[in-house]
Design a protein around this nucleic acid. Sequence first.
DNA 1: CATGAATGAGACTTCATTCAT
DNA 2: TATGAATGAAGTCTCATTCAT
Lengths: 202, 202, 202, 202
Amino acid sequence: MSDVAAPLPLDPSDSQGPPKPLRADARRNRERVLNAAREIFAEQGRDAQIDDVARRAGLGVGTVYRHFPTKEALLEALAIDKFERLLVIAERALDASDAWEGLRDVFWKTAEQMEQDRALSEAMAPDALEVATAERVRLQDAGRLLLERAQKSGAVRADVEPEDLPVLMCSIGAAVRRSAGNPERWHRYVELVCDGLRARTP
Amino acid sequence: MSDVAAPLPLDPSDSQGPPKPLRADARRNRERVLNAAREIFAEQGRDAQIDDVARRAGLGVGTVYRHFPTKEALLEALAIDKFERLLVIAERALDASDAWEGLRDVFWKTAEQMEQDRALSEAMAPDALEVATAERVRLQDAGRLLLERAQKSGAVRADVEPEDLPVLMCSIGAAVRRSAGNPERWHRYVELVCDGLRARTP
Amino acid sequence: MSDVAAPLPLDPSDSQGPPKPLRADARRNRERVLNAAREIFAEQGRDAQIDDVARRAGLGVGTVYRHFPTKEALLEALAIDKFERLLVIAERALDASDAWEGLRDVFWKTAEQMEQDRALSEAMAPDALEVATAERVRLQDAGRLLLERAQKSGAVRADVEPEDLPVLMCSIGAAVRRSAGNPERWHRYVELVCDGLRARTP
Amino acid sequence: MSDVAAPLPLDPSDSQGPPKPLRADARRNRERVLNAAREIFAEQGRDAQIDDVARRAGLGVGTVYRHFPTKEALLEALAIDKFERLLVIAERALDASDAWEGLRDVFWKTAEQMEQDRALSEAMAPDALEVATAERVRLQDAGRLLLERAQKSGAVRADVEPEDLPVLMCSIGAAVRRSAGNPERWHRYVELVCDGLRARTP
DNA sequence: CATGAATGAGACTTCATTCAT
DNA sequence: TATGAATGAAGTCTCATTCAT
C-alpha cells in the first residue's frame, strides 16, 4: 500500500544503466514472454493482443506486464533483439580478410535473417525508426567501417555513403518479405544489389 | 527533380468505371472522403480513426460509411487508387521508343510517386498483397511486357523474371520511405538497381 | 424555404379529426408502404429498418416518412389495421342468431386471423397496449355485447367479465404463435378455451 | 394469493453446474450482472443497453462482457435462469400424490412465477424458441410425465398431447402479462384452462 | 411530391492496463 | 510474485430522421 508504484526494476533491456541481473525464474519468464510475443506478432501482426501473448507463454497477463510495462515496450524489446542479431552478423563480417566479401556477406546473412522473422518484421516495420536506437547506432558504425574498407579496396563505387546502408537493408527486407515463399526471388535481388554496388570499370 | 511525377490531381471523374453513376454531390463527397483519408492515414498511420477522416472531410461519419462500408474498404479504395497511378506510369512507359528507357522510367517515376504518398504507403503496406488485385494484375502485365522487350533488346540481364518486378518495386518503396527527407539517398538507390539490372558484358 | 415545416396533412390514420382524402397516387403509396412494412416486420421482427421497408415498397425513405412520420407511427398503423380486421370479425358476430355461436366464432376467426400475421404480431406484441386505442375500445364494446348476450342465454359462465376477453384474445394469440406450423395444436387450444367458458352444470 | 410462489431468491450457488469453478468474487459479479440485467430489461425492454446493466450492477461494461460475451448471451442466460425456475416447479410437481393436483399446481405456480418477471418475459418473448434448449427439453419431459399420469388417472381428456403443454404455458404467460395489475383476471383464466382440461363426463 | 444522400447520436464491443487476491 | 478479473476509454458501425436536389 506504500511504494507500490515505484518503478519496477525488472527490465534488463532498459538501455540506460547496467541491467540488473534477474532471478533465474524471472529470466525464464522473460524469455518465455519474448518467444510467445515473437510467435503471436508474427502470426497476427502488430494488433495482436497481450492476452494472447500471455496465454501462449503460459503466463498471466500480469506477468507479461511485470516484464514489459507496455505493449510498446514489448515490441521494442523484440526489435532490439532483432537488431542485436543483425549486429552480430555485421561485427563478425569485420573479421573477414577480404573487405568486399565481408560486406557481401552482411547482405546475404541479413537477408537470411530477415527471412526467418519475415512476418514479425512486417508487424514491426512502421515503427522501425524510433526504436532500438542504441543497437541501430552500433549497427551503423559497423556498417560504416565495412563500407569504407570495401571502398578503399576499390571494390565498391565511391559515391555510396554509409547512410545508404540502412536504406539498402530496408529495401532488402522489403524484397525478402515480398518474395514470400520464393527464395530464388530475393536471392536474385541480393545479387542484383551486390552487382550494383561493385565499382564500375570503364 | 523534373516534373515528371507531378502529383496527379485526384481526377474525380475516373474513380469508378462502370459500377454506379453517382449523383454529382455524392461523387464530390466520395472524393472528399478519399482525400481526407489519405491525409489522415498518412499522418497517423493505419490506426487512424474513421471519425477523424470524417471530420477532416467536413462530413458526418455516416457519410463515410455510406461510401465505404468498412474501414478496410476505405483503405482498399486508397490502395486501388495508388495502384491506378502506378498503372498509368507503367502503361505510358509502354509507348517509349527505347525499351530500356521505358523500364528505367518506370522505376524512377514509381519512386517519385512513392515519395508523394510515403506516409500513406507505410500505413497500407502490410496488407498490400491481398488488395487491389485487379489493378495489381494489370500492373504485372504491363511490367511483363516492358521487361520482355528490354531483355530482347539485350539491355537487361536474361535471368530476371517478370515476377521479380513487384519485388523490385516493393524494395524501391522501402528505400524511398527509409530515405525520408533525403532524396539523394533513394536516387542513388534507384541508380544502383538500374545498374544491377543492365546486362553483364563479360 | 418558408413554411416547409408546417405539419404535413397527409396522415389519414390520425385519430383526431376527419382524415383528409388523399390524392389517388398518395393513397397508393401509403398502401404500398403498409404492405411492405407488414412483410418486412414479419420477416425481420420489430428491429427491421425503415430503409428496407422503403426498398421493398419500391419507394424512397422520404416517401415512407411523408406518410408515417415515425417508425413508431408506421408500426401503429399496422396495429390499427390489424385491430380493424378483428373488429370486423367481432361486429359481424353480433349478427349471429345464437349468442354462443357468435362468441365462439369470434374466437375461431380471431385465431385464424392471428395465424395469418403470426410473425407480424410477434413483432408488435410488446407495445400492444398503448396503441390503436380507438379500435381497441370498439372491439371491447363489441365483445362486451357478445359476452353479455351469451351469458344471458346461459351458455357462458356468469363469473366471466368483459375485461377478460382481451386476456383471452391475447392468450389465443400466444397459443397460435407458439403452435407455429401445427394448426391442430391451436385448434385444440381454442376448443379447450371454449369448453372452459361454457357454463358449469352441477 | 397463497405463498406458493414466493419469489425464489436467486440462489447464486446453482447457476453453473460443472462448466467452470468461478473465483468467489467472479461468481458474485456474475450474479450481480444477472440481477441488474433482469431489472434493466424488465424496465426498459429488450432494447435496454448493456451500459445501463453495468451501471446498475455497479461494475464496468468490460466485466459484463467478460461474463457474457454478447448481449444475446446475457439475454439467453436470463432465459435459462427463468426456465430453470419453471423446471423446479415442474419437477416438484412430479412428487404430488394426485396426478391432477400435480399438473394443476404446475399451471398455477408457473403463472405466479410469470407474474414475477412479467416485464422481463415480455422483453425476451420473441426469441424464446431458440434459446435455453436444454432446459426446455427437460421441462418438456417433466410435462410429458405429468400429463400422462393425469390422463391415465382419467382426470384429463385423452386428446391432449404433451406438445400442447408449451402452448398452454405460453398462453398462460400472455394472459398473465395482459392482466397487468389485475391478478383476478389471470386467476380466472387459469381456472378456465384447468376446467377445459378436465375430462368431459358425458 | 419523391428521392436517397447526409447526418450524428448512440449502440455494441474490444483491449491495454491496473489491482485485489 | 503470479494471476486473471475488472476497468472504461475509445473505436467501429448502425439507423432513425432530415433535407437538398
